[in-house]
Design a protein around this nucleic acid. Structure first.
Lengths: 195, 195
DNA sequence: GAAAATACGGAGCAAAGACTCCACTTGTCA
DNA sequence: TGACAAGTGGAGTCTTTGCTCCGTATTTTC
């Protein structure tokens, strides 16, 4: 996505500015949440507001671009872990890394939430990418017996979003994650415990 | 809280209006989220904006009043379950009832999040009430062996907030809750699963 | 039932934020 | 290097929203 939908490629300076805006937006939204103003983003990027709106015609489209970038990066990280030695550690490690990142970056939580629902059109494109990558991690962990067999990628995504939210608010991140992880692990006499 | 902090009791019509505003605010915030406008609340309550601001000098104070009412009601429900026959069912039933309510009422999730952090002054008063009531439910469930012994009320609150958030976004509420509940249950050979 | 106290309603104010417009600058291409 | 297309910046517009102010209406008190 380095050129406008139809027509010539972007001019060099425009390309540079677009990147600056995107980077600034990601940082601003991460710190202040997605309700931060467009002007704040422009200031951080060192460009005029007009420039921001030239590249992203609405605030929503800017936000969308940021979320997509975030999701793609997460998906990439998951992808890399696909061939890790320990599938269980790969899965749980990825999960907790995402959650701990969400604790400081509000935008991550929102991206995950959006990805789960794929409400927005564009995140609808990136969401499945993450879901697929996470799904692969999940499957390998299940085959290795590190994760119970009766959960799917969708539930794990939802759990991930929920835990990210909780991490951003309450303290005790590790303790809450421990509960979720134990819930994900196989447990032979679970039936007994339920009864 | 039916009279002003210092001075005479409220006039009869004022008391009535205050109640109408609070009820309207709860409904509006539940449906539209806490970013709904004060004017919307006034319209729903059938009073002028001036009246809303007379009773709640800032929007924040109105929101706070709604959240406190919500938390107190939840705490009350938890209290009632204190002497239920089956402590495990009481605990898990309460938990899932809260989550399913949060699925349709955004304000519930926010109230829980606030209660966990007790960031706001006033919810700081009501938050501990819920925490205590939930803690009592938790303890009884633990004594009955339905919940693992090594979790505290704080973690459960955080988990509750996270699950409420997840429920409001993704579908698959039951499936995600199942994971969380299994994580909360005792499981003798958990150590083995972790290794 | 009149006077005083209290409350009501909604026009209007001020601040914030999304977005537009256009005179000016910068990159590109022949 | 000149000409033109492309991009920039930020003052200004429009809308929304929290909140105030005060003339009018309702309750309470005696």
């Amino acid at each position: 996505m380095t050129s406008p939908a139809s027509g010539r490629p972007l001019r060099a300076d425009a390309l540079r500015n677009r990147a600056k805006v995107l980077a600034a937006a990601e940082e601003v939204f991460a710190v202040q949440g997605t309700s931060a103003s467009t002007e704040e983003v422009a200031r951080k990027a060192g460009v005029g507001i007009g420039t921001v709106f030239r590249h992203f015609p609405t605030k929503e489209s800017l936000l969308e671009a940021v979320l997509v970038a975030l999701l793609e990066r997460l998906a990439g990280e998951a992808e890399e872990l696909r061939s890790a030695a320990d599938p269980g550690e790969a899965f749980f490690g990825f999960f907790s890394r995402v959650v701990s990142r969400a604790a400081t970056k509000q935008a991550v939580t929102e991206a995950l939430a959006e990805a789960g629902v794929d409400a927005r059109a564009a995140t609808g494109r990136a969401g499945p990418g993450l879901r697929a990558a996470l799904g692969a991690l999940l499957e390998r962990a299940q085959e290795a017996g590190a994760v119970r067999a009766d959960v799917g990628a969708a539930e794990v995504m939802a759990l991930l979003a929920g835990m990210s939210y909780a991490a951003g608010r309450a303290g005790a991140r590790e303790d809450v994650l421990r509960i979720a992880f134990d819930g994900l692990r196989p447990c032979p006499d679970r039936a007994a415990a339920r009864g």
